[in-house]
Amino acid sequence: MTDVLAVADHRRGELRDVSYESITAGRQLADETGGDLHIAVISGTVDDFAAKLNRDGVDTIHTVSHGEEFNHDVYSQAITQLYDELAPQYVLTPNSVNGLDYAPAIANELDLPVVTDTVDLDNDGETLVATREMYGGKVETTTELEGDAVITIRGAEWPAAEGTGDATIEAFDADIDEDAIGSTVNGFEEVGGGDVDISEADLLVSVGRGIEEEENLDLIRDLADALGATLSSSRPIVDNGWLPKNRQVGQSGKVVTPDVYIAIGISGAVQHVAGMKGSDTIVAINTDPNAPIMDIADYAIVDDLFDVVPELIDEFDG
């Protein structure tokens, strides 16, 4: 029997989407051998969360009431105790920033292998086949392992579980050792405010690593001016300090859905795509025809941006 324990992700009173996706992923793994799917929901308004997580395919939901927000020590202690009690084959966690703050720790504590950022999972009851990307998405790999494991799943790779389930909801009385808690969360802050809200724009001209030098940004600014568009960027441009945080599109920046999104010199890393895939029309200008951005582009120009962009400025300025 392949039992699965999946851990829900929530923040500031809201369950995150990946929580519902991990029900789907966990159910698939458990189904191979008719195992049970257990869900753990830890901290915050757990009864409310449990009611929402009670969707098709969930057998039992374990609530651990302790504190309001995520704390990796509380999560680690609660999950290792649930593992001891339930003896699941797989512990499934989101590959979120918080998931990566406890999944490796519980794997080490439980002496289990850890496979992170999986995009597909398959098992026959003995061998797990995990699909992962390497080299920034240039290749996919399969990794096999036998026995118990801790697995993190990438968001938006599995559909969210739907329907209303008939799960048993149980309060799990975890024995949390307060002395072992070595970090304190003091609050949260929204970043990326300021003069412009890129999520409001109809036309975004978005620039990435392909621009090479800070000076070259003027070319893209000129294009945005000529088109009456709003300027945005991928992460490396903001990391370099060339544009402020409020211009960043992606997982850790803004989610945007303009009528047209022009990605210039952006390869299309999964974290970026998460922030712009909802755009109505996506145009990519990139020298690499195999760049991941092409997978979601509606139109593409495979050429040097330094040749194409000046022509485009001329189109509208002339």
Partner: peptide, 18 residues
């Protein structure tokens, strides 16, 4: 305990107009 068993280029899902 992990064994890398396969590596391949992801199939392009691009249906972009080039």
């Amino acid at each position: 305990e992990l064994e890398l068993t396969d590596m391949y280029e992801p199939e392009s899902e691009s249906d972009a107009t080039f």
